[in-house]
Design a protein around this nucleic acid. Sequence first.
DNA 1: CCGATAGTCAAGCAGTGACTTGACTGTCGG
DNA 2: CCGACAGTCAAGTCACTGCTTGACTATCGG
Lengths: 128, 128
Amino acid sequence: MLNQVVDRDPAADLDRVFQALADPGRRLMVERLTTGPASVSELGGPLDMSLAAVLQHVHVLEASGLVRSQKLGRTRTCSLNALTLRSAEHWISERRTLVERRLDRLGEYLAETADRPDTDNEPQGEIS
Amino acid sequence: MLNQVVDRDPAADLDRVFQALADPGRRLMVERLTTGPASVSELGGPLDMSLAAVLQHVHVLEASGLVRSQKLGRTRTCSLNALTLRSAEHWISERRTLVERRLDRLGEYLAETADRPDTDNEPQGEIS
DNA sequence: CCGATAGTCAAGCAGTGACTTGACTGTCGG
DNA sequence: CCGACAGTCAAGTCACTGCTTGACTATCGG
C-alpha cells in the first residue's frame, strides 16, 4: 500500500499535468475543488456526461497528481493537490521570466543605440 | 491580412495553450525560444523527427498563441509570446492561491479547536 | 542557371482520448 | 431485507494527434 510515486520522470510528469489541464471539463472540476473537497458525482454535476465519463476524468486528474482521492463508504472524496499546481506554475513562470528578461535587455540595447547614433557598436553575437 | 485573433473563447484558448504545453517536444521548442528567436529547422534540431513534423508542432504552438512567426526569405523565424505564457501561468496561480488560502484557514480552525477543547463550536456548514 | 537549402502541402496510418452503454458491486436509509 | 445511490469495470465507437512519406515551391550561394 505504499507504491505512491514510483514514477520519477519530470518531463512525463509535466506531460500529464498539462494534458490534464487541457480539458475544459477537467478545469471546471479543478475550479470546483478550489472551494473544497467533492465527491465524483458533485464534480460531474455541471458537466452533462455519464458518471463513468466523469470518473475517467478524475482518473486523469489523479494520474497527473493534481487530485488525490479516498473512498469512504460508497462515496469517493476528491481534493486538490496544491503542490502539483505549483510545479506546473513554476515551469511556466521560469520560462516566462527568461523571455521577459531577454526582451528587456533587447529594449535597453535598442534604446541605447538609438541615443548614441555612432559609437563602437560591434555586432557581438545575436541579441534579438 | 489582419485576421489575427478572431477567436474569443477564453476556455478554448486555455485548451490550446495547455494542450500545446502537454508535449515534451513542444516544451523543448519553447525552452529553446526563451534564448531567442529560431528557425523551424533550429527548433527541430534536437528532436529526431522529420521537418514536416516539426512544422506541425510549430503550427500547434502558433495556434495556441504561445509562438509567433514570420517568414523572411526562405526561413521562418519563430519567437515566444510572453503574454500567452502569462495567461496560462495566471490561471494556475489563481487556483493555487485559492486552495492554499482555504487550507490555511482550515489549519487555523483545527489549531483553535484543539486549544479550546470545549467551547461553542457549532458545526456551521462544511469547512473541510 | 544549378544544386542545395528551408519550408510547405496532402495523404495516409497507428495510437490515444473522450465519450457511451450495460452489467455489476458495494453501501445507506428505512 | 429492499430499493436507491454512488461508483466501478469492460467493451466498443468515433474523432483527433503525432508522425511519415512523397511531391512541390521558393530562395540562396555561387
